[in-house]
């Protein structure tokens, strides 16, 4: 399991635009770089990131090799109700990880 950091406001007002910050530990090997033996290393990146709010998609991003190692993604979302946010990262070599956080809207 890769280490994950997710930062979201402890509580938000209804109708407020909140900022959700995520970071996941991953090397994001581009596939363009030679390894120690001189042979180009295979691509191994996180290809997509999805955030669901009560099972409805709020944010989805496709990542490419140009994303730096340990992908850091921040996005905005309108807080409308309390619910569960589910974050999913999927990538090469069967990489998949899901984390959930509760969002409290007052």
């Amino acid at each position: 399991m890769a280490r994950v950091l997710i930062n979201l406001p402890r509580s938000a007002k209804r109708g407020e635009l909140i900022e959700i910050r995520t970071l996941i530990q991953h090397g994001m090997e581009t596939g363009y770089r030679p390894g120690p033996n001189g042979v180009t290393q295979q691509r191994d990146i996180i290809r997509s990131f999805t955030c669901l709010f009560d099972n409805e998609e709020v944010f989805h991003a496709e990542l490419y090799q140009a994303i730096a190692a340990n992908p850091f993604i921040t996005f905005s979302m309108l807080a409308t109700a309390s619910g569960i946010l589910a974050f999913t990262w999927t990538g090469d070599n069967g990489f998949a990880q899901t984390e959930t956080r509760a969002l409290t809207v007052t």
Binding site: E56, H60, A66, A68, L78, T80
Partner: peptide, 22 residues
Amino acid sequence: GPGARLGARLNPGHAMLATRIR
């Protein structure tokens, strides 16, 4: 947030995206 219903509910005219790139 795709879909008109979801988009209208969860996504206003302002949006922000930040990341780190190569």
